[in-house]
């Protein structure tokens, strides 16, 4: 419940009270100012570069000219692979954890624990792993497939967590009443629980997409740098975030287009964030913390 405010706890001329108020307000002001500066800077420099051509044309001259058409396609393909793999695994795991295991079961505890660790693994370590496992051991090379699979590992914990939360919002009576009607658990799952858990699943999906689209470090050594239009999933493809990184670090004079690409990325994320909090608020009736 958010309604109970301590806004009017009374005034006190106590010096400490005044100091605390000043500190709290200036911390909030500092945070707001910094972030407005950042967003404004990106918007200001990026907006002038954006045009339909920029969004659709392939990059030329290492990205200094042309657009980001092929890069958007690569990003979308990487995302597609990532979701295609992580969704079934994520939903399956969430169903198992929420509906078929107890808190005490060894298997459940092991899975939870390892997902905890997985959610904390630095993205560069995912990059190392993806490079060693998908690119080298499985022989997929620097490809959209490797990148997507690496990202799939990365977004799994978020996906599972939110989907599980979705299942937990379904009242226990539903399960008892269907069991009392003599229905199988599969029937219960597909006809009752899954539909009820869809909002949670969607929130997880949106958050996962947000995390995947923002990722850079895990992609440099898995999906690679090639900025051509990819012809198959086994081609290397450059994601939008990698593009920004490359333009700003390795291409002198690439700042203008880096700004524009950053703006595109931020706008995409804004949209994703908006959808996530809308879903959370209107379907789950509660807030989510996106960490």
């Amino acid at each position: 419940m958010e309604g109970f405010m301590v806004n009017s706890l009374g005034r006190s001329l106590d010096g400490r009270e005044l100091l605390a108020s000043i500190l709290v307000w200036s911390a909030a002001a500092l945070v707001t100012a910094t972030f407005c500066w950042l967003l404004w800077d990106i918007l200001w420099h990026g907006l002038s570069q954006i045009s339909w051509t920029f969004l659709t044309a392939p990059p030329r001259n290492a990205g200094r000219e042309g657009g980001i058409g092929s890069i958007i396609v690569s990003t979308a393909l990487i995302l597609g692979v990532c979701l295609g793999v992580s969704l079934p695994i994520g939903i399956g795991t969430a169903v198992l954890l929420a509906e078929f295991t107890t808190e005490a079961s060894l298997f459940g505890r092991f899975t939870r624990r390892s997902l905890d660790v997985l959610s904390g693994v630095p993205s560069i370590v995912f990059g190392l792993f993806g490079n060693a496992f998908f690119c080298k051991t499985l022989g997929l090379g620097f490809s959209i497939l490797s990148g997507g699979l690496t990202l799939a590992c990365m977004v799994l914990p978020i996906l599972i967590r939110s989907t599980e939360e979705g299942f937990r919002t379904v009242p226990a009576e539903y399960r008892l009443s269907t069991a009392a009607l003599g229905l199988s658990r599969s029937t219960t799952l597909f006809h009752l629980l899954l539909p009820a858990a869809v909002p949670g699943l969607l929130v997880g999906l949106v958050l996962g997409v947000g995390r995947a689209i923002a990722e850079t470090a895990a992609l440099i050594f898995t999906s690679g740098y090639v900025d051509r239009m990819p012809e198959s999933l086994l081609d290397s493809g450059r994601a939008l975030s990698v593009h920004i990184f490359d333009l700003s670090m390795n291409v002198p004079g690439g700042d203008a287009h880096a700004y524009a690409s950053a703006l595109v990325l931020v706008v995409l994320l804004l949209a994703i964030n908006g959808i996530a909090s809308w879903l959370a608020e209107y379907c789950l009736h509660r807030r989510i913390v996106t960490v």
Binding site: G92, T111, V121, F129, I160
Partner: peptide, 23 residues
């Protein structure tokens, strides 16, 4: 269904081990 779900959960749970093994 249960075995299917256990399969997916095993994959999800094994990723960390896989990462450590490869490192």
């Amino acid at each position: 269904l249960l075995w299917l779900l256990r399969g997916t959960a095993t994959i999800a749970g094994a990723i960390v081990l896989l990462i450590v093994t490869f490192l």
